[in-house]
Design a protein around this nucleic acid. Structure first.
Lengths: 351, 351
DNA sequence: TTGAAAGCGCTAACAT
DNA sequence: ATGTTAGCGCTTTCAA
């Protein structure tokens, strides 16, 4: 009975007035009871009458009206350009949503692919709503251009940054991820590792490669003795590069891949060559995609902390003054170890 | 300069009052100009002054205030239980978003996994916002339970339905999808087809199997002569079932798979058995996942129309009286043909 | 051709 | 202990 009937068959929304009338009190009293306003003294009896009326009518305050009055809308804008890119969008969104939930905030979601103009329009739309804060997230770590109007609302960036670091950003620690993944291979005794990278112009590729080299150097292995082949993050490219390397005379005992999809491609090439993972060759992915758990043997990988970044950004934008946040915060990419990595079968000999 | 400064360094939002002042007109006139209110006559000169002031101040109306006044908030609730399940959530969301865009509507997104209680809380939160309409979407087609309060707002269901069909739903036409996929194999000359299904308790599995049998019967092939093995939608299960069937004496010339992930598993088993796709055996997936395009050879599949369903639901909930919509609308799942299907190599002889 | 004023549902300072 | 009242920013009727 949350509504009283009206012409079109739907019901008029219950307002505070209805509650006040039923409880025999003023609208103010209803507010005081519901908001548990401090410094107000409502008798237990009145209080109960109000609560009874609220329950009976199933009254729920209109948040837009509250927002108009208080200036806080309990709504965060969530803007992304690639919401349908792999697991990125959904994972980030779930992280953001759960952080928002904790503060009784809602997410107004917009996906504005492509051109800066559409991004500006989307941001304006969000701000018009209005929103109390904004989270901007993109799939491939990169610099973004944002219209000046974002300065009018507290904003935190996920997996992207703006020129001059004018807005605080949270990013995956890809250097550490690359280093950790490499270290796993080194610890297993691998000394001949081929790195089938993603696109070399990507921020992530550069950082992971840096971590790769750091780990090798740290273990006293010369990075220049390893092979690095550039791919493009797709299954096909992992397949092609792995095939190429397996046909060469220099045989790695382990493969680092630009991402999980390339690793899946490598799996196929390895099988086709009559070899087995990990007994003949170990494989390491990156991303922590769902499918990495499902291939056989399970793919060891490094998970991108999308959920954590979405959560962090939302949490911070709600609880801190974003102007006091560090320009860049790095979130660690956790290792996910499965069956695709083992020690090298042959003694690590040259040629 | 969209804001005038205030204590905390942020700026106060420009209101209609500011515009009126700058233009030297009343707030009413500003509204008339901006809303192009019919039946009003504003002189070209005044009109221009108002528009100039709007541009100068970068004034943008507060939608919440408009909504409070008009009763329409230009916001649709989008509720899902599995937003991070594969491509489902993002694709449905993008479809919904694009439809909403066309009507200058926004999406308030909530993901409420699990229990009915959380779903009810989420729906209440959305309605409180308030929203003008609601779209509810789930990943695996199934019946859902929704609290009675949904009746207070126009609602359309995506990929799910409620008991008694009290709410209009849009669903993928899985029977036709299963039939079409099977027909492709039949047209290529296959007469020995194994179906590695997903979980048999799923609505989708039942429907696709129905289509499978219909197509076979239509081609004069006895469905009981084929083999049907139950899997669980995971890569592993496709791998295990394919392995099992390849070891048996009855050798299919084509594999229908419960989804793309099972098909990927089947690929691996086929390779391990020293066979090739499609020359030795054809493979058909289902879902139209991103990865289906990336494996080698490309996987032929049937795409689930998530985008289309999200778009349809949002479009309808905004433009039609949902009470007049048919209880169930089926959207066709388009065939995506790639290299994984070819004619059978051997003459279709009994094993 | 324009403006004054009421009111959407709510909060909160200020009565009483 | 409770109620009156003045807005929040907007639309829209009615009056001028």
């Amino acid at each position: 009975m949350a509504k009283t009937s009206s012409a079109d068959g739907r019901r008029r929304r219950i307002t505070r007035e209805d509650v006040a009338q039923l409880a025999g009190v003023s609208k103010t009293t209803v507010s005081f009871v519901l908001n548990e306003t401090t410094g107000q003294t409502i008798s237990a009896e009145t209080r109960q009458r109000v609560l009874d009326a609220v329950a009976k009518l199933d009254y729920r305050p209109n948040r837009a009206a509250q927002g108009l009055r208080t200036g806080r809308t309990a709504t965060i804008g969530f803007l992304t350009q690639d919401i349908d890119f792999g697991a990125f969008g959904a994972a980030t969104l779930v992280g953001a949503q759960q952080a928002a939930d904790g503060h009784h905030y809602h997410l107004l979601v917009m996906n504005a692919p492509g051109e800066p103009l559409r991004v500006e329009a989307a941001i304006n739309d969000l701000i018009d709503h209005p929103i109390d804060a904004l989270v901007v997230a993109v799939a491939g770590t990169r610099r973004v251009r944002l219209p000046a109007v974002v300065t009018s609302v507290p904003t935190v960036l996920v997996n992207c940054f703006v020129a001059g670091n004018a807005l605080p950003a949270v990013l995956p620690d890809e250097v550490k991820g690359g280093r950790d993944a490499t270290q796993v291979l080194l610890d297993q005794g691998h000394r001949q590792i081929a790195y089938l990278t993603g696109l070399s112009r990507e921020w992530a590729t550069v950082a992971r490669l840096k971590g790769f080299r750091e780990a090798l150097t740290g273990a006293g292995v010369d990075p220049r003795q390893q092979r690095i082949l550039e791919g493009n993050f797709h299954v096909d490219s992992g397949y092609a590069l792995a095939k190429q390397i397996l046909q060469g005379k220099w045989r790695p005992t382990a493969l680092m891949c630009g991402n999980d999809r390339m690793a899946i491609g490598a799996y196929i090439a390895i099988l086709e060559a009559g070899l087995r993972v990990p007994s003949d060759i170990s494989v390491m992915g990156y991303d922590g995609q769902e499918s990495s758990a499902e291939v056989h043997p399970g793919l060891s990988t490094v998970r991108l902390p999308y959920y954590e970044m979405g959560h962090w950004a939302t949490q911070k934008v709600l609880t801190e003054d974003v102007r006091l946040l560090p320009p860049r915060t790095y979130v660690s990419c956790p290792l996910v170890l499965r069956g695709s990595v083992a020690g090298p079968a042959r003694p690590p000999a040259r040629g």
